[in-house]
């Protein structure tokens, strides 16, 4: 009984304490940001990810009247950047811009953070749909169905290019191969630029790649886009069917996505402010247009939705990696 009363008293004081801090917490969000905000990116300058970060940083510093600095911490497929932010002060002044690698790496090697528990999700930023492109000179197919038929007839003869076995493009190709039961050979490159050269030169016959990189070559007829990796068609190339519809694999959806995270323990009020400001910046049509030039389609959601997305994505890749290990 005494115990229960003590418990009640403790609870009462705890509540008081929280109440006492409430105005302060609210003030924290109102005053946020109080100083320079670091936006950490795990990828070197140049390319879509960096561009998104820089556009976002520039606009947010206009809104906040505080400098927002993009910090490119490269290395370990983005894990060095993730690690830095996971262990930074949870006050919203250190943010992390992540891409698909974020949910791939924990499946690939040991990392010093927990992709779900070490971070507080803010929102997804968008995605870059990956086009399945072929070089018609070396692989004369007009549709994904034709590609699959050819790959079935001659298993292991088609080379596909990727940015390495830990890259999203590799995982997307693997996912498609698993869903359709075809067999092709991976050729790894350091980044998608060299892979595109190889596709143009005929060293590989197909690959998944961002629409922005290959659009000019598709227009000139050197390359042919036969499918897009998203669940639905992309507004950039409305004539190109999705992998799901072209190969009749319902639910096939795999893209390079981008999102914004803060360290776990960041006050919810600060997360809410960050969320609202970022969403407002990205809602500007001029910004969306500029990012679309880089192949980037803006797409935002709520912190809870983003959290659930990360959970599902980790599980999706874990499934694929389980297959690797049993092979």
């Amino acid at each position: 009984m005494a115990n229960a009363r003590q418990n009640l008293v403790t609870r009462f004081f705890c509540t008081l304490l929280v109440l006492a801090f409430l105005p302060w917490m609210a003030a924290q969000a109102a005053n946020f940001p109080e100083r320079t905000v670091r936006l950490v990116v795990g990828i070197a300058p140049g390319g879509a990810t960096d561009a998104v970060a820089r556009v976002l940083a520039q606009k947010l510093s206009d809104v906040w009247g505080q400098a927002v600095i993009v910090e490119n911490r490269t290395g370990g497929e983005g894990t060095i950047a993730s690690n830095t932010v996971a262990h930074a002060a949870p006050d919203g002044h250190t943010l992390l811009l992540v891409t698909t690698n974020f949910t791939l790496t924990p499946n690939q090697f040991k990392v010093a953070f927990d992709a779900e528990k070490s971070f507080a999700p803010i929102t997804t930023l968008g995605q870059t749909p990956e086009l399945l492109i072929v070089n018609p000179a070396t692989l004369p197919v007009n549709s994904l169905a034709e590609l699959i038929a050819l790959a079935r007839a001659k298993p292991g003869t088609i080379n596909f290019g990727t940015g390495g076995t830990s890259s999203p493009t590799y995982m997307i190709t693997k996912l498609m191969m698993k869903a359709t039961g075809i067999e092709m050979v991976n050729v790894s490159y350091h980044g998608m630029g060299p892979a595109l050269v190889a596709l143009l030169g005929g060293e590989v016959q197909m690959m998944f790649g961002a629409a922005s990189d290959s659009a000019e070559h598709i227009k000139s007829g050197k390359l042919r886009a036969i499918a897009v990796s998203t669940a639905k068609r992309t507004p950039q190339m409305p004539d190109v069917p999705s992998v799901a519809e072209a190969a009749n694999i319902p639910g096939f959806d795999a893209t390079a996505w981008y999102g914004l995270l803060a360290p776990a323990g960041t006050p919810p009020a600060v997360i809410a402010k960050l969320h609202d400001d970022v969403v407002a910046v990205l809602a500007d049509p001029a910004i969306a247009k500029r990012l679309q030039n880089e192949g980037f389609l803006v797409q935002t959601n709520t912190p809870a939705e983003f959290g659930a997305f990360i959970h599902a994505d980790l599980a999706k890749w874990a499934e694929i990696y389980k297959d690797f290990k049993t092979q």
């Binding site: 561009a51 556009v55 922005s212 659009a215 000019e216 070559h217 227009k219 000139s220 050197k222 500029r290 030039n293 880089e294």
Partner: peptide, 10 residues
């Protein structure tokens, strides 16, 4: 590219 120009064959 951020300016909307994609260098390429064209």
């Amino acid at each position: 590219m951020i300016q909307g120009i994609t260098p390429g064959p064209q």
